[in-house]
Design a protein around this nucleic acid. Structure first.
Length: 794
DNA sequence: CAGTGAGCGAGCTTCCGCTTGACTT
């Protein structure tokens, strides 16, 4: 039994540290927080200085009891949790649970896991910082109060199942406001003029006109003006420039780059990184620090020198600049720089490579470039053409890594220019004046939302991915692809003294894996902004963080901060609960020309919808769902009226009606009891699909269902079916599906006994032969009765 | 697989941050 027990947060870390400390030290993990507020109640004694009522988290009971018994047998316990607000609190809570004397317990910290750092830490212990712990308590209590008091307001005033919080509600707000900006955005177009020239070097190059024209006539008259012009280079400017590498990865920048370069959702990036971390291949993946340990810097230097030579190495220490960063860890980097390839599967390998390259590049020399700018005079105009080019003189870090950007299409791809001389006369090959449209602000991707949140200091590395998934789970936001629209644009070309004008078409506005607010998301945001503007303020977190810092520095008492915040907050909760009207996002679209009744869009019990008429009218209102891709704010009366035309009878097939409608799973054709989905991307439309097309779909579906059955058996009055499914044959029994094990019999050869074996005694269930036939009939009778009466009506 | 659409309010859920598995598909 070791004399010393060291407690850290992460089990993967404990292994490495144990190696550095030797046999006298046992290193164990707390697995994060060990106590928390109760899950199902507020757990804060508001009257009594907002005292939190912490309890051991259910999944940590085992951890605590194990630590307790180890601590009993150890001579000394060291608290080595992360050096930040949360880590200090974890340390305190662990010490409490183990019954240690807080004032005497040794607290050690390190920011990197190297032998030196750990040994230095052990040689310089301190005690737990209770002010820092207090700051964490303030953070925890404030988040709980906000979440548990706001969520019920939303459920009462908007819809069941909703939630609000300091982080998630602001994240949704960002997306809602961006969407409205985009809706409001009116794309202006202008005419950009590009000339293609050839000089003495006989190598064509292009140059842009220094001015854009607002209208086509302006652009056209310019082309007329220069029809017979001569061009010469009036000036050449050559400037050296530098490009520096980016800092090594933090959680947020890793998520952004993995999203841009590999298309990973943020949760996947974290899962894959976790695997790499657990395999000991990279450092901790939840960090806001860009700091590299000295040993890591040295390892990079060695690797760069070996691979590319000494000139490419430039050891650099980066400084973290993000708001509210706590820097308890290093940046995300490979643990062994000499391994340029690592990882167990293709995703891990790709992510590792990205991390390796980014880390290495961060320690490499800047790239040196030469920027050339040539000004071209036009003999018949005062305007000038400008040609720019860039030549890389020294690759530096670009040899390894090039960061990508969100707005790729805005970037001017600066290419090479041929050798040009001042005064050189140029031959104009052609001049192109093309209509260009301004783009609306981009919608957020998961990763760009994380970037924005980090800039605002909202959320932490450990919560970025969960937050993104929460706002989707709550139905505030959806991640979707949206098809673009066709747009026509004008292009004029001046060539050999002739101007030709052409109208071309292009696709625009297509979105891939972008975040869109839902109607619920918009209504909730509007409601919260109206009634709780301070919490919805983008600076709310930054402001409370200042207070937390003051608490940590003993310049502010936790109770004072809580009192100050809660007084006005709770008052607005009570006020809003009492006085605010129920919100449904109702919007009047217009008048139905047939009935003369109002057409409105609103959120109903089951989500957004359109309706004709009002509940209070004598005639009952008619309801329909919103068309795909529309929401309450964008739906038009035409869209709405179209939806009321469904289900639409398309025609007859063998004496029975075929109807087209849109259901939960998209558009479909129904004939008798057969439902056939309209295949996507096949150009079908529920409103226009013909009887012939519908018939083909129905026939195909019927055939598919017939082919699906391989065999069926009777098992005490229940069916065991062997079916052909999308992913191969399977067994269906009692509404459950069972996989047929590989390597066994063919699905077609399975007997009843084989099927029973696959289903297993547990799933075969209670209706065993042991029970009397009378008993086994009972549930059978009950079942259809239950089905017949709709379960929701009460 | 493919429907629904009110409101009261019992009873349940809800927050953010720190960590991994134990579960399904």
């Amino acid at each position: 039994m070791a004399d010393n027990l060291v407690i850290v947060e992460s089990p993967a870390k404990s292994q490495t540290i144990k190696k550095f400390l030797g046999p006298d030290y046992e290193v164990k993990a707390s697995f994060g927080h060990v106590v928390d507020l109760p899950q199902k109640s507020l757990g804060i004694d508001i009257e009594n200085n907002f005292q939190p009522q912490y309890e051991v988290s259910p999944d940590k009971k085992k951890v605590i009891s194990e630590l307790k018994s180890l601590a009993k047998n150890a001579k000394k316990v060291w608290i080595a949790t992360d050096e930040d607000r949360e880590g200090e609190a974890i340390g305190r809570h662990v010490a409490n649970q183990l019954g240690l004397d807080i004032k005497k317990t040794s607290r050690i910290v390190f920011h990197e896991i190297t032998k030196d750092a750990i040994q230095h830490a052990v040689a310089n212990p301190r005690t737990l910082d209770m002010h820092l712990v207090d700051a964490q308590q303030a953070r925890r209590v404030l988040d709980r109060l906000v979440g548990f008091e706001l969520s019920p307001v939303l459920r009462r005033k908007i819809k069941a199942g909703l939630s609000a919080g300091r982080v998630q509600s602001v994240a949704v707000r960002l997306i809602v406001e961006r969407e409205r900006e985009i809706q409001k955005f009116e794309s202006e177009s202008s005419f950009k003029v590009v000339g293609f020239f050839i000089g003495d070097a006989k190598q064509p190059f292009k140059a842009e006109l220094s001015k854009e024209f607002k209208t086509q006539p302006e652009a056209q008259s310019f082309l007329e003006e220069i029809k017979a012009a001569l061009y010469n280079i009036s000036d050449i400017e050559v400037k050296p420039g530098k490009k520096s590498p980016s800092a090594p990865f933090t959680t947020s920048t890793l998520q952004q780059e993995a999203s841009r370069k590999m298309g990973f959702p943020v949760a996947r990036t974290m899962q894959v990184a976790q695997k790499l971390y657990e395999a000991g291949l990279i450092t901790y993946m939840r960090t806001d620090s860009v700091n590299l340990s000295e040993t890591a810097i040295a390892a990079c230097q060695q690797e760069i020198t070996k691979l590319y030579g000494k000139d490419y190495s430039k050891p650099t220490n980066y400084v973290t600049k993000s708001k509210g960063s706590q820097e308890a860890h290093e940046c995300i980097r490979p643990t062994h720089m000499e391994n340029s390839v690592a990882g167990a599967d293709p995703q891990e390998k790709k992510l590792y490579e990205l991390i390796w390259k980014r880390t290495l590049a961060s320690q490499m020399a800047p790239a040196e470039v030469e920027k050339t700018k040539a000004t071209i005079d036009i003999s018949t105009s005062k305007l000038k053409f400008i040609a720019t080019g860039e030549v890389i003189k020294f690759e530096g870090f670009l040899k390894v890594y090039m960061e990508s950007h969100d707005d790729e299409d805005d970037q001017n791809q600066e290419g090479m220019l041929p050798i040009l001389k001042k005064g050189e006369l140029l031959t104009m090959q052609s001049i192109l004046a093309g209509q260009k449209f301004k783009n609306h602000p981009p919608r957020y991707t998961e990763a760009s939302l994380v970037k924005k949140l980090e800039e605002l200091g909202i959320g932490r590395p450990s919560t970025y991915a969960p937050t993104i998934s929460t706002i989707q789970k709550r139905g505030y936001v959806v991640k979707e692809d949206r098809p673009g629209e066709q747009r026509s644009f004008v292009e004029m070309i001046l060539k050999a003294g002739q101007i030709t004008t052409e109208t071309k078409k292009q696709m625009t506005g297509a979105e891939k894996q972008k975040l869109f607010p839902t109607d619920i998301g918009m209504v909730v945001t509007d409601f919260l902004v109206e009634h709780f503007s301070d919490i919805m303020d983008y600076n709310f977190t930054a402001n409370v963080e200042e207070d937390f810092d003051k608490i940590a520095e003993n310049q502010l008492q936790r109770q004072d901060m809580m009192l100050n915040f809660y007084g006005s907050f709770h008052a607005s909760v009570v006020d809003t609960m009492g006085s605010a009207e129920r919100q449904s996002g109702e919007r009047e679209l217009g008048i139905d020309p047939v009935s003369g009744r109002k057409v409105i869009a609103r959120i109903g019990r089951f989500g957004p919808m359109v309706q004709i008429g009002h509940q209070d009218d004598e005639e009952k209102p008619k309801f329909a769902s919103l068309p795909a891709g529309k929401n309450i704010e964008t739906v038009t009366i035409e869209d709405a009226l179209k939806m009321f035309a469904l289900p639409r009878v398309v025609g007859m097939y063998e004496g029975k009606e075929m109807a087209a409608a849109i259901g939960r799973f998209g558009p479909y054709i129904k004939r008798a009891s057969v439902f056939a989905s309209l295949p996507r991307d096949a150009g079908y439309d529920v409103f226009t699909i013909t009887a012939e097309q519908a018939e083909t779909l129905v026939k195909a579906k019927v055939e598919q269902v017939q082919n699906r059955n391989i065999s069926a058996f009777d098992y005490h009055g229940k069916q065991i079916e062997v079916l052909k499914g999308q992913y191969g044959p399977y067994i269906k029994f009692d509404k459950n599906n069972f996989k047929i094990p590989k390597g066994g019999k063919d699905a077609t050869d399975l007997t009843l006994e084989d099927c029973m074996a696959i289903i297993g005694p547990k799933a075969l269930g209670s209706d065993t032969p042991a029970k009397s036939s009378a008993k086994s009939e009972k549930p059978k009778k009950k079942a259809p009765v239950k089905k017949a009466s709709p379960k929701k009506k009460k």
